[in-house]
Measured scan of single mutants.
Amino acid sequence: QGDIVVALYPYDGIHPDDLSFKKGEKMKVLEEHGEWWKAKSLLTKKEGFIPSNYVAKLN
């Protein structure tokens, strides 16, 4: 089961498979690959890669 993270900063995706998000948006982490994680937005239901240093895990 994936962790839920919250965006600390907004992110505008650079690549087509990036997931753009707004500050405060919550996402479910699907896979962790070093600095880039695959996640699904709980708001938009879209999936893509996010920079892990832009988010914090919720406990």
Rank of each mutant, 00 (worst) to 15 (best):
K46I: 07
E25G: 01
G24Q: 03
E25K: 00
S52K: 15
L19P: 01
L30G: 03
E25R: 02
F21P: 00
H15T: 09
S20R: 07
I50A: 02
P16H: 09
H33P: 04
G24K: 03
Q1G: 12
V6H: 05
G48L: 01
A56K: 14
D12S: 12
E31R: 07
A56Q: 13
N53F: 09
G2A: 10
I14Y: 09
K22Y: 07
K28L: 15
Q1Y: 13
N53A: 14
T44V: 02
K26P: 07
G2I: 10
D12I: 15
W36Y: 11
H15P: 11
W37N: 04
P10Q: 13
W36L: 08
K38A: 05
G34Q: 05
W37G: 01
G34H: 05
V55W: 02
K45I: 06
D17G: 15
G13Q: 06
G13I: 03
L43M: 10
G2D: 11
V6D: 02
F21D: 00
Y9D: 04
K23L: 08
F49W: 15
L30W: 05
P16Y: 08
L19H: 00
S20I: 06
K40G: 04
L58C: 12
E32H: 11
G34Y: 05
I4C: 07
L58G: 06
D18N: 09
L8Y: 04
Y54L: 12
V6R: 06
K22P: 03
K40T: 08
E47L: 08
K57V: 11
Y11K: 03
D18R: 10
G2H: 12
M27G: 00
K23Q: 10
G48P: 01
A7G: 08
G34L: 05
S52Y: 10
S52L: 06
K23C: 11
K23S: 07
K46M: 11
F21W: 02
P51S: 04
F21R: 00
K38C: 11
E31C: 13
P51L: 05
W37V: 09
G24F: 06
N53E: 10
D12H: 14
L19F: 04
E35M: 13
D18E: 15
V29N: 01
S52V: 09
G13V: 04
G2W: 13
V55R: 00
G13F: 02
L8A: 03
W37L: 15
G24E: 04
P16F: 08
K40E: 09
V55D: 00
P16R: 08
T44M: 02
H33N: 12
Y9G: 05
S20Y: 04
K22F: 07
N59S: 14
A39H: 01
G2F: 13
K38M: 13
H33M: 10
L58H: 07
Q1E: 13
V5Y: 14
E35W: 14
